[in-house]
Design a protein around this nucleic acid. Structure first.
Lengths: 207, 183
DNA sequence: AACTTACTTTAAAAAGC
DNA sequence: GCTTTAAAAAGTAAGTT
């Protein structure tokens, strides 16, 4: 009885210690990525649900925390790529992706793939492009999804290409290199995507 | 008619050719054989006509992969047994060969909207993460197979034990997409 | 910009860490 | 879980020329 009581305290201490560590990890990563408080709170909720469902077994706290943050960003429509989450985590992007799929399924998060549109605000501000370019980029992406030009393509690559085109149409041209850098894709990818978008959406690009 | 161009791309099978093998001896006698016990417990040996790759273990068990059809699996394993005999290694007469997995490709001949399919099949039954991989992963229970669906309409079916399993898997996907008007 | 090579995902067996 | 094998799908990446 006393032994059982002490064991509970011990377990409780360990549980609280782990939760505290996980929450500090979420805070640390969220800060490093400059994420708003609402995203951190959403990530904390996802993490707690994972703990309540014993999904941590056999997985590292850091891995589940990183996956929870990745999921939270998507839920809040301010997505970060697995590479970006991976840069502020000690866990590999492969492990984060695998853990994300696991908790996503177990917690029935039912998240649709990230829309390229959700990357437009962040990428545009990173390129110092104003609202007009953003709107044009979003418009291009809307037409792109209607014409099946986004299926199976990386969301960041498609978003980058749309922004590249929009910047030219609005007379605020950014180079493929500049857009590629903020979007985290290669110039080759932007080239492939923008040519496809321009052709299928009948947009004339005058360089 | 319903030409899905189903093509078997790879067959994986396992069998037991002896009670034990001296992998070091086989490595010395077989040209191109690779055996690094610290790296992997099995000896790797590649053959051609028909093309295939073997993983040979000290237990006498063998894994054959890379064959393009089930008949080739029997042919290459038979050839392997003969080569072992030539080197003075006795092998089991009629080894029981088990096909463990078949990978096949197919084509629905239609451009697909993977986002719509993800919703149609139910987010809880599929995995579609274009950030990591362009294909949508659909796990089927009836024939227990996994189908990778691409926007081009091409498919990859894997996990089946027979060519029939693969064809059934393609049929299931085709009918489901049809019933949802996504094809 | 073209080519080549290579890595992402799926399944399955083998023996051992 | 990992290690090793083979093969396809399509996208993305990296190194050469």
């Amino acid at each position: 009885r006393l032994r059982k009581w002490q064991r509970r305290i011990r377990v409780s201490n360990a549980t609280e210690r782990n939760l505290a560590f996980a929450l500090s990890e979420l805070d640390r990563m969220a800060s490093a990525l400059g994420l708003p408080r609402t995203v951190r709170e959403t990530a904390a909720v996802v993490y707690r649900k994972a703990v309540d469902k014993n999904l941590i077994r056999g997985r590292s706290i850091e891995g589940v925390a990183a996956a929870a943050l990745y999921a939270a960003c998507r839920q809040c429509s301010v997505p970060r790529t697995l590479d970006e989450i991976g840069e502020v985590s000690r866990v590999s992007r492969k492990e984060i992706g695998r853990t994300y799929r696991f908790i996503s399924r177990e917690l029935s998060l039912k998240l649709m793939p990230t829309s390229p549109i959700d990357y437009v605000p962040r990428f545009c501000s990173g390129l110092n492009l104003k609202g007009e370019v953003q709107s044009k980029g979003v418009e291009i992406l809307r037409q792109a999804s209607e014409k099946e030009l986004t299926s199976g393509r990386g969301p960041t690559g498609v978003a980058a290409a749309a922004i590249y085109i929009a910047s030219i149409l609005c007379g605020e041209r950014r180079t493929q290199r500049e857009v590629a850098d903020v979007a985290g894709v290669t110039e080759v990818t932007i080239r492939n995507r923008y040519k496809e978008l321009a052709e299928e959406l009948d947009i004339e690009i005058i360089l | 008619m319903t030409d899905y161009n189903i093509k078997i791309e790879n067959v994986v099978a396992s069998t037991k050719l002896a009670d034990e093998f001296d992998l070091t001896k086989i490595e010395a006698e077989f040209e191109g054989a690779e055996y690094n016990k610290q790296k992997f417990p099995g000896l790797v040996y590649r053959v051609s006509e028909p093309k295939a790759a073997f993983l040979v273990f000290t237990s006498g068990k063998v894994v054959c992969t890379g064959a393009k059809n089930v008949a080739d699996v029997h042919t290459v394993i038979s050839n392997m047994a003969k080569k072992l005999n030539e080197i003075g290694i006795k092998t089991i007469k009629e080894p029981e060969i088990t096909v463990q997995n078949i990978v096949a490709s197919a084509d629905l001949h239609a451009v697909l909207n993977l986002n719509a399919i993800a919703i149609g099949l139910g987010l809880e039954n599929i995995e579609y993460e274009p950030e990591q991989f362009p294909g949508l992963v659909y796990r089927i229970d009836k024939p227990k197979v996994v189908v990778l669906i691409f926007s081009s309409g091409k498919l990859v079916v894997t996990g089946g034990k027979t060519p029939e399993n693969c064809a059934e898997g393609v049929e299931v996907v085709k009918q489901q997409l049809d019933s949802m008007g996504l094809l």
